[in-house]
Design a protein around this nucleic acid. Structure first.
Lengths: 105, 105
DNA sequence: CCAATATATAAGTACTTACTTATTCGAAAT
DNA sequence: ATTTCGAATAAGTAAGTACTTATATATTGG
């Protein structure tokens, strides 16, 4: 299932941190990403492969560099899954989120 | 981290199915849940423990029965995490979701 | 009290995962 | 051409996961 792969990809803290870091930049090479994480380069490559398999991240090849970026469509299956359960959330949270939503316009 | 536990809990298809089933009912006993899943009773109890540990589900004890229900606050950390990346989503999706949101009023 | 029922816990196992180091592959630079 | 550099792959390993069966712990009904 698509959702399982996404949830599984984001369950790992290192992988989530990589994704969050990518989200903060337009794109990053593997070695740029490696700096700041206390794991080996292969580990980073393996995490990126997992994120890519889940559709969360896309790759651009340029010479011997590989640039990774967040795939905008990647999180939507997850967002749709969660939205099915909005009915359960406390009203308070919904209101807070509407406020936040209005702020970044 | 809180999010890791939630993502991990929902990464398993059986566990996600249990959560979805619970979301469709007000509450269910373990044996009620067991019916329909092709795993043993201990497996169900273990999945419920994982969901409870992640804060996704709450338990009510009554005699020898244990009734489980969705915890409304459970998904909010996940929703908040995702909302940090709304900026990346295609505008199209946002519009669709607004439509869906309007429908169930 | 005793047997039956509902659930949880224990212990074991096959499978998966998150890493490591070593190696390979491809592209640039010298 | 050969070395050097960026990234991917291979192979091994320790730890974690998702189940199983067997057993324990309550609670209820006869």
């Amino acid at each position: 299932m698509v959702e399982s792969e996404i949830f599984r990809a984001l369950a790992d803290p290192t992988r989530r941190a990589i994704f969050e870091r990518l989200a903060g930049a337009r794109e990053m090479s593997v070695s740029q990403l490696k700096a700041g994480f206390d794991v080996s380069q292969p580990a980073i490559s393996q995490h990126l492969a997992a994120l890519r398999g889940a559709g969360l991240v896309a790759e651009r090849r340029e010479g011997r560099f590989a640039y990774y970026r967040v795939d905008p469509k990647g999180l939507t299956p997850l967002a749709c899954w969660i939205d099915r359960y909005r009915a359960f959330w406390p009203a308070r949270i919904e209101k807070l989120k509407d406020v936040l939503k209005g702020m970044d316009r």
